[in-house]
């Protein structure tokens, strides 16, 4: 069961002259939920965006299931990595169902009826069966984000990446999105989450990765991190939150 699914190996990333990731090593096992935390600007989101090559890295390698992400066709590798964004990014000209069915139909060439049927099941799974025909405009932020999760799941990815997916939500809508993610964790989905919801990180994360200034400064089992961080940076980060 514990075989590494996503591996970061000495990853460096710069935007122009500004280096934002320094020699990042990280391994995510199959079925594992890794929560990446850290102060703003520490490179958490960039790390996720490098994984599906929304950003190109300057040195090192990222492997998915043993294959180098860098050397594989970008459109092929992205089909295996589900990405959910802070700002949902649903397609406003498509209904919830069409948002979910679009990529399986166009990218994987599934027949339309089959893609729509699968999309309806996924919407049911995120609790939005009754909103299938709604346009994103008519949905709340929490509902939109759940559709976005269903849309990513529709490609049957090996790993799901969540980039601060509750940060743009009204507080009372955060719970419904976190419930969906918890459900995925229970189903054994491999996930990397960047979040500021510490309570949730503690609940759902198998492991906590703390980043600061573009480096991984601590990686610890969730329980022990919140009881007694292994590093000074970890202690500082937690104390500032409390």
């Amino acid at each position: 069961m514990t075989r590494p699914l996503v591996e970061f190996d000495g990853v460096d990333k710069s935007f122009g002259d500004t280096q934002v990731l320094y020699d990042v090593d990280l391994s995510v096992d199959e079925g594992e939920v890794v929560v990446v935390i850290g102060p703003s600007g520490s490179g958490k989101s960039t790390l996720l965006r490098c994984t599906n090559r929304l950003e190109e890295i300057q040195a090192g390698d990222i492997r998915l299931d043993g294959r180098s992400v860098i050397e594989t066709d970008v459109n092929e590798i992205r089909q295996q990595i589900g990405m959910v964004f802070q700002s949902f990014n649903l397609f406003p000209h498509k209904t919830a169902l069409e948002n979910v069915a679009l990529a399986p139909e166009k990218v994987k060439g599934r027949p339309e009826a089959e893609a729509r049927e699968a999309a309806a099941e996924l919407l049911d799974r995120v609790g939005l069966a009754d909103q299938a025909e709604s346009y994103p405009n008519a949905l709340s932020g929490g509902q939109q984000q759940r559709v976005a999760i269903a849309r990513a799941l529709a490609m049957e990815p090996k790993v799901m990446l969540f980039d601060e997916v509750t940060s743009a939500l009204d507080p009372e809508l955060v719970g419904e999105v976190l419930d969906v993610i918890e459900g995925l964790a229970a189903d054994g989905m491999t996930m990397v989450l960047v979040t500021h919801e510490m309570g949730f990180a503690r609940e759902v994360g198998d492991r906590i990765v703390l980043m600061a200034d573009g480096r991984v400064v601590e990686r610890t089992e969730t329980a022990s991190f919140f009881e007694e961080p292994g590093t000074e940076r970890g202690r500082q980060f937690l104390s500032r939150l409390l």
Binding site: I81, S87, N89, A103
Partner: peptide, 22 residues
């Protein structure tokens, strides 16, 4: 918004397909 192209590309669409569909 740039996020539209990013979301489409993240689903594995090519640039041309993302332009056309999204």
């Amino acid at each position: 918004p740039d996020g539209q192209m990013e979301a489409a590309r993240s689903l594995g669409m090519s640039r041309v397909m993302a332009l056309r569909e999204v």
